[in-house]
Amino acid sequence: MKADLEMVKAVLSGARKVVALTGAGVSSESGVPTFRGQDGLWKQHRAEDLARPDAFAAHPELVWEFYNWRRGLVGKCEPNPAHFALAKMEEQVPEFLLITQNVDGLHGLAGSRKLMEMHGSLWRVRCTVCTHAREDRSELSDVPECPVCGHMLRPGVVWFGEPLVPGVLRLAIERISGADVFLSIGTSSLVQPAASFFQLAKDHGAVTVEINLEPTPNSGFMDFALHGKAGDILPELVKMR
């Protein structure tokens, strides 16, 4: 892998437009639970069954209890070297965009500003009726109310069965289509539309790089596949300048 690592560093050193996509693997290195499979059980509920608009409509107290529990866990986690390396990469590359599927807010804490949180954030709340939305890291009540209209607030995340925030996908496609280098980091490459981003980048001439603990379904199609901890690999890549 050493040779590939050096080649990726060389490619990045000459790149002007870089898009990085991050997934749960980056957060797991900070101790953030993935909430998938058996590990995703909470009081005998699957996370996928609670992170749904119909679940919130039927049992808002239960869903908020789950999200307050998640906020409590994630709030104890800190950015790891991968998060800080991506913030550094933002400083080094003239046109950089970090797209994350994670909702834990750790990229922002690490200093990333050119950041698109595709699936929202655990630390945002928004009204179910009016346009009120805010970042709120305080301990919330069981079912918090909107200070503007009095209706229920909900977590500011994209749930299963919901579309992305309008404009997010369009901007992602636009920036990926113009990238010199596309990095896929810590993602299983199973969830659409993000799983297809690498192909969009490749079709438009970008060098594609996978950084993941284990091979993914996309590994064989990437120009470079670096397997190992993102927290070990990314700091090496930002030593390029």
Rank of each mutant, 00 (worst) to 15 (best):
K88F: 10
E214P: 07
T22S: 10
E29N: 03
R36F: 04
D104A: 08
R134T: 15
I99L: 13
S28F: 01
S30G: 01
D4L: 12
D223G: 04
A51E: 08
L169I: 11
S121E: 11
E6S: 13
G120K: 05
L200G: 05
D4C: 12
T208K: 05
L237R: 03
E117D: 09
P215T: 07
H83W: 08
E174L: 09
R154L: 09
Q92H: 09
P53S: 07
P53K: 03
C146W: 00
A20L: 05
A58I: 10
T100K: 01
I185Q: 02
L41W: 11
R134W: 13
A47H: 12
P166R: 10
S184K: 00
G220H: 05
K17M: 11
S30A: 13
M240P: 09
A194I: 00
K76E: 14
D142I: 14
C146M: 07
L122A: 08
R71A: 06
M222P: 03
A51N: 05
L169S: 08
E65P: 06
G40W: 00
L98P: 03
K239Y: 09
A82E: 04
G14R: 14
E135W: 14
D180N: 11
A57E: 14
H151P: 08
G220I: 05
M240G: 11
R52N: 11
A58W: 08
P215G: 09
D223K: 06
F84Y: 15
A201C: 01
P81V: 03
K239Q: 15
A206T: 06
A195V: 05
L50F: 04
P147L: 08
V168N: 12
L213T: 09
A57N: 12
Q192M: 15
K239S: 15
V181D: 04
K17T: 13
A24T: 04
V18N: 01
T216N: 06
M240W: 13
Q101Y: 06
L106H: 03
R16V: 09
V209M: 00
M116R: 11
M118N: 06
R241A: 14
T128E: 11
M118S: 10
